[in-house]
């Protein structure tokens, strides 16, 4: 069986373009903000990149970010062609590359390329029942944070001195994610994070604002909008998605209580695949039963 790999963060097999010439302007706008627009998520992450870079210059360098993007897209093309026999859509690789370009912090150049290579390759190697179970950029970043701390850290700065750029990205991001029917994941995670911040505060005695501080940074915007919502590596049911988002926040809280600096990445690294494996196992149990039932009928 030819492996199916993620070609878009939203809907891999969605139609390519608006299509018919008689489509009205309103329909066009609706389509633009629809589940079917494969370019919506890439546009959102590009918006975050531009907001951060133009207002505060938060990139390590244009070259490093470009390297991460180009490497991810190039490898996606190569592996897609070699493994599946066709050229894949590059939206997913673009998002992985840009996430890496923003989130990885290293004075060296090689981690940007290596992280992209690891992320994309992981999609083709780490598969169960023909489904990749780790979010690619989450896997790549965790691998480097774990294996190469001597040369790699992650984005830890904030949006300058003002709420405005952050607010713009949160509002626009929320609207877009809402249209993509994944807002419940973000909302669950953010609310859970806030509740667990209060819980951590009561346990550690540290101010609540100190505990909630990390989520005000741009790293969390990428994490919330792109990593925990990735359709290919989240479970399928609405309730399951809400539960997994809650579990990510819960595991993150446990890691934070143990003073793990990169708690959100590791929480998703642990929780996401576990949830996917449970779902795969559950589905494999359901199918034979359904077949038995059909046979009986």
């Amino acid at each position: 069986m030819t492996p199916e790999v993620s070609t878009s963060p939203t809907l891999p097999d969605a139609p390519e373009a608006p299509g018919t010439p008689d489509r009205s302007f309103v329909d066009g706008v609706k389509w633009f903000f629809s589940f079917e627009n494969r370019f919506l998520a890439p546009m959102l992450i590009t918006l975050i990149l531009l907001a951060g870079q133009l207002s505060f210059g938060f990139l390590e360098s244009y070259w490093k970010t470009s390297l991460a993007i180009v490497t991810a897209m190039f490898l996606e093309l190569v592996l897609g062609r070699l493994i599946t026999g066709k050229f894949p859509h590059l939206a997913s690789a673009y998002i992985s590359g840009i996430s890496i370009g923003i989130l990885v912090r290293s004075p060296a150049i090689w981690p940007y390329a290596l992280c992209s290579l690891l992320s994309i390759t992981s999609k083709y190697v780490l598969r169960v029942k023909d489904r990749h179970i780790w979010n690619p950029s989450n896997f790549g970043i965790c691998a480097l944070l774990f294996l190469a701390p001597f040369s790699v850290a992650s984005l830890s700065i904030q949006w300058g001195n003002t709420f405005l750029p952050m607010l713009v990205v949160w509002v626009l991001g929320s609207l877009i994610i809402y249209r993509l029917k994944r807002f419940h994941i973000c909302l669950t995670y953010v609310l859970s994070f806030a509740i667990f911040s209060a819980l951590r505060s009561s346990i550690t005695g540290h101010p609540f604002l100190a505990e909630v501080a990390p989520i005000t940074g741009p790293m969390y915007q990428l994490f919330v909008f792109f990593m925990i919502t990735d359709p290919k590596t989240t479970v399928k049911s609405w309730r399951g998605q809400v539960l997994v988002a809650f579990c990510v926040a819960l595991v993150e809280m446990i890691l934070r209580l143990n003073e793990i600096v990169h708690a959100p990445y590791y929480a998703l690294f642990l929780t996401g695949p576990a949830a996917n494996l449970i779902e795969i196992w559950w589905n494999s149990r359901q199918r034979p039963r359904a077949m038995d039932f059909e046979g009986a009928a």
Partner: peptide, 26 residues
């Protein structure tokens, strides 16, 4: 015992949080 975790936690926070010493963990 290291303060790095708490330092990194607040250092990435917004202006209203980071600029007030009372928000910094002991």
């Amino acid at each position: 015992r290291s303060y790095w975790y708490d330092f990194a936690k607040v250092a990435g926070g917004n202006r209203a949080i980071i600029s007030d010493a009372k928000n910094w963990p002991p």
